[in-house]
Amino acid sequence: MKKKMPLTLYLILKSPLTLFGAVLVILLILMAIFAPLIAPYNPNRISLREKLAPPSLKHPFGTDEVGRDLLSRVIYGSRISLQVGIVVVLLAGIPGILIGAFSGYYGGQFDNIIMRLMDIVMAFPPLVLALSIAAALGPSLVNSMMAVAFIMIPKFSRLVRGETLSLKEKPFVLATRAQGGKPLYIIFRHIIPNSLSSVIVLASLVMGDAILVAASLSFIGLGAQPPTPEWGALVSVGRKYILDQWWYATFPGLFIFLAVMGFNLFGDGLRDILDPKIRGR
């Protein structure tokens, strides 16, 4: 792997859109990690004297209805969004990968049943399904993450199943079978490691989707609850003031857009970069 990193880096640098996506993603991560250092104020500091102040040098993004600094809230919001993205990817990815690998490897009726279940989940519009799950569980950030994770599982399992179907016929898998390797061993030693590069691509795309869906849930009040500085929740409250205080909803919205675009561009680029046909050169 030591030798592969420079190649990946080289290919990222050669593709401007991927580079742009990567920069956005990295900035988002840095913002989340160093939030306390870069945020000019405590995101929850109320200052009623300054409520709904327009953008100024003191408050570059303006303030909200109780005078909290919006820039600081947006910066802290990145922590929540990133956390949502990571938790959703893990919560959807791990079961998704396992379901896909086992289903694809064993095949037959087992595979049929599992895949039809996945189809059922995928048949619903994601937002509507997430909405009903979140509503049933009760509005909270944790519940909305679980809802979003649930609807993302089929994405992972279908991808990994496809990879598994082709990998299980590969000579190196046949060789291990011929040497007495058990299915569990083959799945964990050959199938999953070899599916990981496409999983990483999907994970990046799902990160973006998850941030968006979670923000949407917060926007309609089913996710993070105020005063949590979640971007979707910020937009939701800011919506009331959109006509007179445009900055309130605009800046958090812009960050949702940038984060989602960052992950999507990065994921798309990564798909090309991890393509062995391109790497082979």
């Binding site: 000579p171 050959h190 070899n194």
Partner: peptide, 19 residues
């Protein structure tokens, strides 16, 4: 399984690239 083994044609796909 220990006594019977196989060698394949394609030296590329017969070794796990991640190992």
């Amino acid at each position: 399984r220990r006594k019977i083994q196989i060698v394949f044609q394609d030296p590329y796909s017969s070794l796990d690239p991640r190992m």
